[in-house]
Design a protein around this nucleic acid. Structure first.
Lengths: 178, 178
DNA sequence: TACCTTTGCTATCGACATACTAGGGAAAGC
DNA sequence: GCTTTCCCTAGTATGTCGATAGCAAAGGTA
């Protein structure tokens, strides 16, 4: 509808709808951004509360949608909340103790799936006998990255060394030729 | 109408539609399996044609759906086809020259997306300034695995060393505790 | 030529997920 | 009480995904 485009992707091509085998959903993206706002507050005072609307305006995210995300994060024990005037949200765990995988799993469920099944559950006949190992490896790579980065790492821009090596690979910042 | 997945039912559950931020679609899964059948034929005779229905029954995949997949793979230059009696499909490139990333891109488009946009296109304000690096790293990790494995590697079960290291990680074959 | 086989293509379908919005209700504090 | 804030359920628009049907086009065979 109103095409809420991020302030960075100007005259690029439209990628309408869901695209990509690894897809960071709006929930995961908004959730991470909300949590990074809470990390900033946490570093001032670990018990400081931030209102949902403050987070929403700071990150330019629909406020009612964000409320649902924050509720899920609370139910997963990542965030604590308080109601009433001067209420709000805060981190309930140390930022160094919450990984991106924690956040993604809390909001979107399991990291990886093959046709809706867990990778270790699929069976392959005949010539595709060893395909399962491939999907397991994909999931393992995903876990390796997402479980190795904490909220603190992102907030302070201090990513693990193997992750920065990934970023230093040639062409990591460009898209592949179609 | 609880859509809750029973955790104890191992054999046949479907996990309720699409799930997972890395999702290997039916197209990618079926496409890989079809190609591995074609690799087996290729090793006998690189020009040998295999009928769509033969592939479908060998891999237990819906025929008409597979036809569309094979057509996409032909349009991407991965397979060749011939019509008429004694027609069929064959690999059009050497199995060592086709990576899993090639297949996935041919069938499902770009490897990674953040809310439908390319990871390098999203822009983050304030506290989430460095979130983009994370998504870029996720995509780089995906590329590193999928561009490093060829059809031949899977057919002969000779995965690259860094991939087998991923598979040897403790817990790689088990799901994480919910 | 007529006929059969096999791929090529388009259109369509139901089911479900995604990304929201609406409109309240419940608690905390003054 | 009253206000503020989070909590919750339900609903909607849109799109994708997995799959099927039907027919056209290309190639071989008699």
């Amino acid at each position: 509808m109103s095409r809420v485009v991020q302030p960075g992707n100007a005259a690029n091509e439209r990628m309408t709808g869901k695209n990509g085998t690894v897809h960071i959903s709006a929930k995961a993206d908004y959730g991470m951004r909300a949590l990074l706002e809470l990390v900033a507050a946490y570093r001032v005072d670990p018990l400081q509360l931030v209102k949902g609307e403050a987070i929403a305006t700071a990150q330019q995210v629909p406020v009612k949608f964000l409320e649902g995300i924050l509720r899920q994060l609370r139910q997963s024990g990542i965030v604590a909340s308080q109601r009433g005037a001067d209420g709000g949200y805060r981190l309930d765990r140390d930022p160094s103790d919450v990984t991106i995988a924690d956040v993604v799993r809390a909001l979107d469920g399991p990291l990886a799936a093959v046709r809706g099944n867990r990778p270790e559950d699929v069976e392959y006949p005949g010539a595709s006998e060893h395909l399962r190992e491939v999907w397991i490896a994909v999931r393992a790579a995903m876990r390796h990255v997402l479980e190795g980065i904490s909220l603190e790492d992102v907030a302070l821009n201090r990513l693990p060394s193997d992750v920065t090596e990934l970023l230093a690979e040639p062409g990591a910042w460009q898209r592949r030729k179609p």
